[in-house]
C-alpha cells in the first residue's frame, strides 16, 4: 500500500492532469519530487495509527513491565517509517524513469536528494508519531493526520505557486513543503538549490525539534495515565 498509492498518484498526475497542466510534456520532471513528498505523507500517516494502537492496547504496558526502554515503541515506528518511505521513494523514482523521467543529478546531487527526503520523512513522521501519542484511539489518530496530507497540494508540488490566487500563494510559498520540493527538484535537475535548501533543512530540523520536545513531554504522562 505504501508503494502502490504513490505510483497511482504519479500516473494520475502525469497522464490525467499532466496534459492540461503542461501540454509540452515536461510535467513529469516537475511533478516527481511532489509525488515523492506526498507519498511520504501517506506513509508516515500509518505511524500515527501504529503508535496509537500500541498506546491504547496492551503493547505499551507490556514493554513498560519489561527491562526495555518504553520509548522503544516510538523509535521502532520512526525507523520503520523512514525505511518504508525511502523504499517507496526509490520505487516511485524507478517507475518515473520507466515512463520517461530523466533526472540529471550527479552523485552529490542524489546524496543531497536522499538526505533531504530522509530528513523530511523524519520530520513528518515525528509529527505523526506525536499525533498518535495524543490521540485517544487509532481512528482519531488517522483523523488528526488528515489535514497534514493536504499540505502538498497547497505547495509547489503539483503546480507552480505563481498560478495560485494571492492568499493561497502566500501560504504556499511559506509553508515547509515548498522549499523541500524546490530543493529536491533543483538537485534532481542537476542544479544548485541555493537558499531553498537552507530553508528546507531549517524547517525540517525545527519541526523535528518541536515534535520531539512535545513527545518527550506527552509520552511519560500518557503512559503513566
Amino acid at each position: 500500500m505504501a508503494v502502490i498509492l504513490p505510483l497511482m498518484l504519479m500516473l494520475i498526475f502525469v497522464y490525467v492532469f499532466g496534459g492540461a497542466i503542461s501540454p509540452s510534456g515536461a510535467y513529469l520532471d516537475y511533478v516527481v519530487p511532489g509525488i515523492v513528498l506526498t507519498a511520504a505523507g501517506f506513509g508516515a500517516g500509518s505511524t500515527a495509527v501504529g503508535v496509537s494502537r500500541d498506546m491504547t492496547t496492551g503493547t505499551i504496558n507490556r514493554l513498560r513491565t519489561m527491562p526495555v526502554p518504553s520509548a522503544t515503541v516510538l523509535v521502532g515506528h520512526t525507523v520503520a517509517s523512514l525505511g518504508r518511505n525511502l523504499l517507496a521513494t526509490v520505487v516511485v523514482l524507478l517507475a518515473a524513469v520507466v515512463i520517461g523521467y530523466r533526472p540529471s543529478a550527479g552523485v552529490l546531487g542524489w546524496l543531497g536528494v536522499f538526505a533531504l527526503l530522509g530528513l523530511y520523512i523524519l520530520a513528518i513522521t515525528s509529527v505523526f508519531a506525536m499525533l498518535g501519542l495524543v490521540a485517544r484511539s487509532p481512528e482519531a489518530a488517522t483523523g488528526y493526520g488528515f489535514g497534514l496530507l493536504f499540505l502538498p497540494y497547497a505547495s509547489s508540488a503539483f503546480v507552480p505557486v505563481e498560478t495560485m490566487p494571492g492568499w493561497l500563494r502566500g501560504f504556499a510559498e511559506h509553508q515547509p513543503i515548498t522549499p523541500v520540493i524546490e530543493s529536491s527538484r533543483a538537485l534532481l535537475m542537476g542544479q544548485s538549490p541555493g537558499s531553498d535548501a537552507v530553508v528546507a533543512v531549517l524547517w525540517c530540523v525545527g519541526i523535528i525539534a518541536v515534535a520531539a520536545a512535545l513527545t518527550a513531554y506527552v509520552f511519560p504522562r500518557r503512559v503513566a495515565r
Binding site: T57, G58, T59, N61, R62, T65, M66, P67
Partner: peptide, 17 residues
C-alpha cells in the same frame, strides 16, 4: 528497573502484534 527483569505480566488485553 530492578523488578522488571524478574517479573512478567500478561494483561487483560493481548499485547501481541
Amino acid at each position: 528497573h530492578a523488578i522488571r527483569p524478574r517479573i512478567s505480566v500478561t494483561g487483560q488485553f493481548a499485547a501481541v502484534d
